[in-house]
């Protein structure tokens, strides 16, 4: 309990200090609860998510960093490894491959990497996974781009 709090506090300071270090990630802690974080990440370039800003919600367990944080997308995203309704993310480092050496910041980076490199073989979004598995890259990209535009971009006008 105390350990996780101390560690999160240090991470918070680290984030404050390196705010400009990674322009694609904006990690903010809940004002009243250090175990709740939200992150805004930019969709990686040359992917259908480019130009979109995606919001992530972190719920950090008390056993952190021994237990991974629970992360989900708050922004709708069409991606094979993200549940379309709940935003749940299928990513090994958030499950069994978690290492206490990871930080919330590095989790964000891993999620950005996952957006650029989907794993259609372990899909949470079957439609998206099937498009990729059947080789319909174009179909996948246009669907993903459409949802990026609908959900992850500021409305124009």
């Amino acid at each position: 309990m105390q350990a996780s709090r101390a560690r999160l506090f240090k991470e918070y300071k680290e984030v404050q200090r390196e705010k400009s270090a990674d322009p694609d990630i904006q990690l903010v802690c809940d004002d009243s609860n250090i175990f709740k974080w939200t992150a805004l990440i930019k969709g990686p370039s040359e992917t259908p998510f480019e130009g979109g800003v995606f919001q992530l919600a972190f719920a950090v367990p008390e056993q952190y960093p021994l237990q991974p944080p629970q992360v989900r997308f708050l922004t709708k995203i069409f991606h094979p490894n993200v549940h379309f309704k709940t935003g749940e993310i299928c990513l090994d480092i958030l499950k069994n491959a978690w290492s206490p050496a990871w930080t919330l910041q590095s989790v964000c980076r891993a999620i950005i990497a996952l957006m650029a490199h989907p794993e259609p073989d372990s899909p949470l979004n079957c439609d998206s996974g099937n498009l990729l598995r059947s080789g319909d890259t174009r179909g996948y990209q246009s669907m993903a781009r459409m949802y990026t535009r609908l959900a992850a971009m500021p409305k124009k006008g």
Binding site: A6, R7, P65, L91, I93
Partner: peptide
């Protein structure tokens, strides 16, 4: 994503603070 290239950095330069609890 995936593997962590810890070893290459940490073998050579021992951190002066614990990377887990800082």
């Amino acid at each position: 994503h995936g593997g962590v290239p810890w070893a290459c950095n940490n073998v050579l330069t021992a951190p002066s603070s614990c990377p887990i609890c800082y």
